[in-house]
Design a protein around this nucleic acid. Structure first.
Length: 943
RNA sequence: GCUGAGGUAGGCCAACGGUGAGCCGCUUGUCUUAGGAACAAGUGCUUGCGGGUUCGACUCCCGCCCUCAGUACCA
């Protein structure tokens, strides 16, 4: 017993917390609330990896710290349990995915409890629970019932959508169609990855280089009717909302870039009969810039309307709807073939960086609106259908991509922006031999010559607007969210499709009534794909698939929602997890929201966080939540890498090659400078030594080796299993180590010896209070009821101050370092006042809760340490009566003197100059200047 | 290419413009209930490089190099 034994202590206290519901959170907060949230995990079959406890320990420390300071903390955990792996398992074994999901959740729960996190487990949610996804479906119906009023910039009920008179007069079906076209959840044809060999549709992450990840079968992109969410409507709101959030700048930047707002102009280029151009222009002057470009014009979007005079050709994307109209009979075959080719390529392939540009001339010409020049229209896949208008005006002189394309196909380059006079390549730019994308002075631009880029942009845009040929425009990179998946293990859509007597879809839809939610997943015989691109739910029995309401027959929607759906709103459900009447009780929502601290990996920087914000804003607009943003502060924990490895390289005949001479080709194959194949070998620590910047072989210092920590991965075999660490060192040691490795946000390599280091610290804490030598349990004889002496008191109060401030700012590594100093100090001390030990244990308890509970009870306390009050420090106790002050000579520290803490400038200077060492060093020199900072230092500038 | 983070001792990392904190490692002792020991003493950097500001720079400014992560034809 007397030795520190975490494997005995930790389960005992975990049971205590569970029995006593130590961390149960009240329904409504009393006093100051704090909502501390972890990104909930996907419960994979591999269990926790050491990256999970990093963020979870951080939030646990924050939560325990806040409770000790009297705040009311909501700190929940749950599982994002829909997803592909469970479905893959089901397909292979025939076992329902629910079964494996449940056993994975059980394992995760066991591991999380083993680490002593102070979650309120009664609030646990899983996205796969019917009680949960019932409300995921409900939120979908809110989206379905909402349209975006762009005037008011907010979502409103579909019933409030103004119906234009021409549609109203066309009848009920037209009105319904119009509504459907405006809902935030709508259907559209989108491309899916269909793999004929596997007979299934694949998720993007299951496709690599146009082939299925499993089996390497070719994947075709085919259009399929999909559910989309109109997130683009919220672009501006999502962008603005970022301003007030306490998020890392990097993450904000990522979201901004993802939304990708740009401003410029839309411009129509005339493509009709050449004789008709004047009439067309006149019409435009009269009508203004129309909503649609019409038959006779090709509309483009540009951020550089100032370069319009340099537009020497145009490009449309291979999917552009006007291709048929543009293509001439001579070019017909070439264009069709090109477009066909493009349709096989994924977006990925089409946008891969160093690929040479390709394209085909359509045979048609357009008229440049500013100079009436005829310019050719091409089709090329470097123009994307989904952005802007899917067509561009190409200005090769001032756009890198257009320049490359123009050189490839010998198209004209006309410079219209003169770079600053001191530009090193000005000559080549003006000759059209080099591309220049920055701002400058307009040339070759008629009336605009001599003006600066910004001014020309504005003037060209307004002049086009006057003539009805252009308009100021804003564009976003953000696309609408493809929201349906052809999968079994996901939330079914609460939507019914009307079928006629012949069993054909009529195109009319109906939302499942709220009281009929949840729509459950059907029972299937097996989970194997049925070989058609429809979702697996289409295999369900007619009992599930067909519904009759008011004598009309409906077929259920058979797509399921993507995994993002459940994770979009789980933070709300934790607040009211058992509510069967509503998604959340408004009073509770108001009391707990927003999330005060959200911690998780940076891999969710864009998608999860953007999707959640979008849903939250819709719920906000519709009055279901009270805050405009869900997550106030966000922190991304850094990645934990494997142990540092030394890697040497050898050729086939086993001779060593210096790491500096090893080349890696595109496939990752290694070769030496001379072209020989080399292989990497792992070296042990004692085979290498430090030399200069890097490491070399001890046996041959000419041979350099790589020293680097790699990502943990099964294939590399460097994965650290938390179960083993807990068994070997204890949960407190694991928690403490992960916090001590370095700053939370940093990427850090794992080092098992470091875990031993913090374990030694915990051992020292134990021995500071417990007599480890005795056979029975006995407190350490050095403990005393005497008060602290001055030094001890100062150590205590300085530790309280440092740990309080560092914990508050989440600088856990330095807080721990300070607690180590405290322990070293008192371990050396023969007398250890209990009045110092107790507050120290409270300081340490958020970090190492089990050990602290145990020692706390040994000190005679009967209630949990979690119920105590965080100690405060006394400023007066911090100051020393006398302090050491360094003496610098010419800025270099030469010696130190001891003076009273409040010594005046003069006294310090006198003492310094009187010091023997200083005297000798000043011998024969004159003091040019003396700087005395009271309480800090003395600097003597001498000659 | 772009964006972000970073470069301090053999490793991990602290340091309001003012003394290198802490942990691991290493060396040598001591002690022992032989442990993941403990204790004691010791060990170490041109703070990535080059300039500048300053009495004084890891810290502020300018230029460069390197590493890691993410991202990439969005007109």
């Amino acid at each position: 017993m007397p030795r520190y034994n975490p494997s005995e202590i930790e389960p005992r206290w975990q049971a205590y917390w569970e029995e006593n519901k130590t961390f149960a959170t009240p329904a409504l907060p009393s006093g100051k609330k704090r909502y501390v949230l972890d990104m909930f995990p996907y419960p994979s079959g591999d269990g926790l990896h050491v990256g999970h406890p990093e963020g979870y320990t951080a939030t646990d420390i924050v939560s325990r710290f806040a409770r000790l300071r009297g705040e009311c903390v909501l700190h929940p955990m749950g599982f994002d349990a829909f997803g592909l792996p469970a479905e893959e398992h089901a397909i292979k074994t025939g076992e329902h995915p629910r079964i494996q999901t449940q056993s994975n959740i059980d394992n995760f729960t066991r591991q999380l409890k083993m680490l002593g996190f102070s979650y309120d487990w009664d609030r646990m949610v899983s996205t796969t629970d019917e009680d949960y996804f019932r409300w995921t479906q409900w939120i979908f119906l809110v989206l379905y019932d909402t349209w975006f009023d762009s005037e008011a910039q907010r979502g409103r009920a579909i019933a409030e959508l103004p119906i234009p008179s021409e549609i109203a007069s066309a009848g009920e079906a037209a009105i319904e169609q119009y509504r459907d076209a405006n809902r935030l959840a709508y259907q559209d044809d989108a491309l899916v990855n269909w793999c004929p060999a596997l007979g299934t549709v694949l998720a993007n992450e299951e496709v690599q280089d146009g082939k299925s990840e499993r089996g390497g079968h070719p994947v075709k992109r085919i259009p399929l009717r999909q559910w989309m969410l109109r997130i683009t409507s919220y672009s501006e709101r999502l962008l603005e909302g970022l301003d007030d959030l306490n998020w890392p700048v990097g993450i904000k930047k990522l979201q901004q870039d993802w939304i990708g707002r740009s401003t410029g102009a839309e411009v129509d280029f005339y493509i009709g009969e050449s004789a008709g151009i004047d009439r067309w222009k006149a019409t435009r002057v009269e009508s203004g810039f129309p909503q649609e470009a019409g038959e006779d014009a090709l509309r483009v979007y540009t951020t550089r309307p100032d370069t319009l005079f340099g537009a020497t050709y145009m490009v449309v994307s291979p999917e552009h709807p006007m291709i048929e109209r543009l293509v001439t009979s001579e070019q017909g075959e070439a264009v069709r073939e090109y477009c066909e080719q493009a349709s096989f390529k994924s977006d990925r392939e089409r946008t891969e960086g160093d690929r040479a540009k390709t394209g085909v001339f359509t045979g048609s010409y357009a008229v440049n609106p500013v100079n009436r020049k005829l310019i050719p229209v091409w089709v090329a896949d470097y123009v994307l259908a989904g952005y802007g208008t899917g067509a561009i005006m190409a200005v090769p002189a001032h756009d890198d991509r257009d320049f490359e394309f123009a050189k490839q196909y010998a198209l004209e380059v006309v410079p219209v922006v003169d770079p600053p006079a001191d530009h090193p390549q000005r000559g080549e730019i003006l000759a059209g031999d080099v591309c220049f994308v920055a701002q400058g002075t307009a040339i070759n631009s008629g009336e605009f010559d001599g003006k600066q880029t910004d001014e020309v942009k504005a003037s060209v845009t307004s002049s086009l607007a006057e003539q009805g040929q252009g308009n100021h425009a804003v564009n976003y990179k953000l696309r609408d969210w493809l929201f349906s998946r052809q999968r079994f293990w996901g939330e079914p859509f609460p939507i019914l499709h009307e079928v006629d007597d012949a069993g054909e879809l009529t195109g009319r839809k109906r939302a499942v009534a709220v009281e009929d939610l949840p729509v459950q997943l059907p029972e299937l015989e097996d989970f194997k794909p049925h070989g058609r691109p429809e979702p697996p739910l289409a295999k369900a029995d007619d009992d599930w698939l067909y519904v009759t309401i008011d004598e009309k027959r409906y077929r259920r929607e058979t797509n399921t929602m993507p995994q993002w759906a459940g994770s979009c709103w789980y933070y709300l459900r934790y607040i009211d997890p058992k509510n069967s009447d509503a998604m959340i009780d408004p009073a509770k929502e108001k009391a707990w929201m927003p999330v005060d601290l959200y911690v998780g990996g940076a891999e969710h920087a864009v998608l999860h966080l953007l999707y959640s914000r979008f849903w939250h804003k819709v719920l906000f607009d519709r009055g279901h939540v009270s805050t405009p943003e869900p997550f106030n502060a966000l922190i991304n924990q850094g990645m934990i890498l494997g142990e540092v490895e030394f890697t040497g390289y050898v050729t086939e005949d086993n001779s060593a090659v210096s790491a500096a001479d090893v080349r890696r080709d595109a496939e990752g194959n290694l070769s030496s400078k001379t072209g020989q194949t080399v292989t990497a070998v792992v070296l042990s620590d004692d085979a290498v030594e430090k030399k200069g910047e890097g490491f070399v072989l001890q046996s041959d210092p000419q041979i350099r080796v790589d020293s680097r920590a790699h990502k943990m991965s099964k294939s590399r075999g460097n994965v650290v299993n938390p179960d083993e660490v807990v068994r070997e060192y204890g949960a407190d040691a694991l928690r403490l180590y992960e916090m001590f490795m370095g700053p939370l946000e940093a990427t850090k390599p794992w080092a098992m010896t470091g875990v031993g280091g913090v374990r030694n610290f915990l051992d020292r804490v134990w021995r500071m209070i417990v007599d480890a030598k005795s056979d029975e349990f006995k407190l350490n004889a050095s403990l005393t009821d005497q008060p602290c002496d001055e030094d001890q008191n100062r150590m205590l109060h300085r530790t309280i101050k440092k740990v309080t401030e560092d914990t508050d700012s989440m600088s856990f590594n330095t807080a721990i370092a300070r607690m180590m100093e405290f322990t070293n100090f008192f371990t050396r001390s023969e007398s250890r006042p209990i009045s110092a030990m107790k507050p120290f244990l409270i300081l340490l308890s958020p970090y190492a809760p089990h050990l602290c509970e145990e020692l706390w009870s040994h000190l005679g306390e009967s209630d949990s340490i979690a119920a105590q009050t965080w100690p405060s420090w006394d400023e007066a106790a911090l100051v020393e009566s006398s302090i050491e002050v360094p003496i610098q000579i010419n800025g270099k520290v030469k010696t130190k003197i001891r003076v009273a803490a409040d010594a005046s400038k003069e006294t310090i200077a006198e003492t310094a100059l009187a010091d023997d060492k200083v005297k000798t060093m000043l011998d024969g020199k004159t003091i040019v200047k003396q700087i005395v900072v009271p309480g800090r230092l003395v600097n003597l500038v001498v000659k």
